[in-house]
Nucleic acid binder design. Structure first.
Lengths: 157, 157
DNA sequence: TGACATTAGGCAACATGTTGCATATTATAT
DNA sequence: ATATAATATGCAACATGTTGCCTAATGTCA
């Protein structure tokens, strides 16, 4: 298989994998969806409670989508959304003790989940995959910038 | 960054990439969405016109979703959906001449798109990424099978 | 200070993903 | 031959992703 075909395959497979991993993750823990899981993971990497838009950018979802997930998580008591004291526009997201406790309990199963998902991966393959995806993410950012600066030219096909 | 963290990162990034690649692909050609593109690519890899469910399985979407995309593509004249002569249940999907012509014209731009997306990838990195995603796909299939055979145990957390 | 741009977020609409349940046709096994 | 299982599809509902347009608060610069 030549390089170009491999690239096309990678392109297509990312969508397939995203769909299937979501189903798998939803199955893994019925209490919390895959996207809610990643949302919480995202929040936990911030040192100070992030704003919705800040978090959305970080985890790569649209603001609207992040907001909807946040609403669901607040509903089920995993996060709180509180108005910022200094900026009347902003809301800050914080994990509740319930959430921290729950994920502490899940931790071992999470590790098993990841290990099982990556069955047969040696350190080198894992690292190349990691490196490749990071680079792809970077390239996409560049790519989008170039589209923004074009303002169409798209109809010229 | 240790291996486990890399795996978690890969897991999360696949979702991020899927979202962003979809936006990027939709931007690339306003006449056809990214998912429609992949749908057509899928059809073109079959030697005989595939059934919807056959194709859905191949490209990794749910049947319902594939059906909806098919309806949109039929609406815009890129495919035809015809009843199978020998099996009254089945419908067969075929690309129209219009579709083939359109994608022939797009071909050069598609290649440029992929090359740009994979800027900075040498043959080795491309191949490892390719290999890693294939393996991940395989593992997911296994994983799902194991869930099917369990019939829950999930609440035991 | 006042005009203007930027930022945070809400609401509505729509595309895309899933599951669950129903129906009709075909395949299989006794 | 007929009961049963499997396959192919349709419809409805709901989760999740996006954009576009709106308001309000904040930041910036003359």
């Amino acid at each position: 298989m030549d390089e170009l075909r491999q690239k096309a395959y990678i392109f297509g497979t990312i969508f397939t994998l995203a769909n299937k991993l979501q189903v798998l993750g939803d199955e893994f823990d019925k209490n919390i969806t895959t996207k809610q899981w990643l949302f919480i993971l995202g929040v936990s990497t911030f040192r100070e409670p992030p704003m919705i838009s800040e978090l959305a950018k970080f985890i790569g979802y649209s603001r609207q989508n992040a907001k909807r997930i946040a609403a669901a998580l607040q509903e089920s008591g995993y996060i709180t959304i509180t108005k910022d004291e200094n900026d009347a526009r902003a809301s800050r997201i914080e994990l509740t003790p319930k959430c921290r406790q729950y994920f502490k309990k899940r931790d071992k199963r999470e590790i098993e989940f990841l290990e099982k998902l990556f069955t047969g991966f040696d350190a080198e393959l894992t690292h190349s995959l990691y490196k490749g995806l990071i680079r792809l993410e970077l390239n996409i950012k560049e790519f989008m910038r170039s589209y923004e600066n074009m303002d169409s030219d798209v109809d010229s096909i």
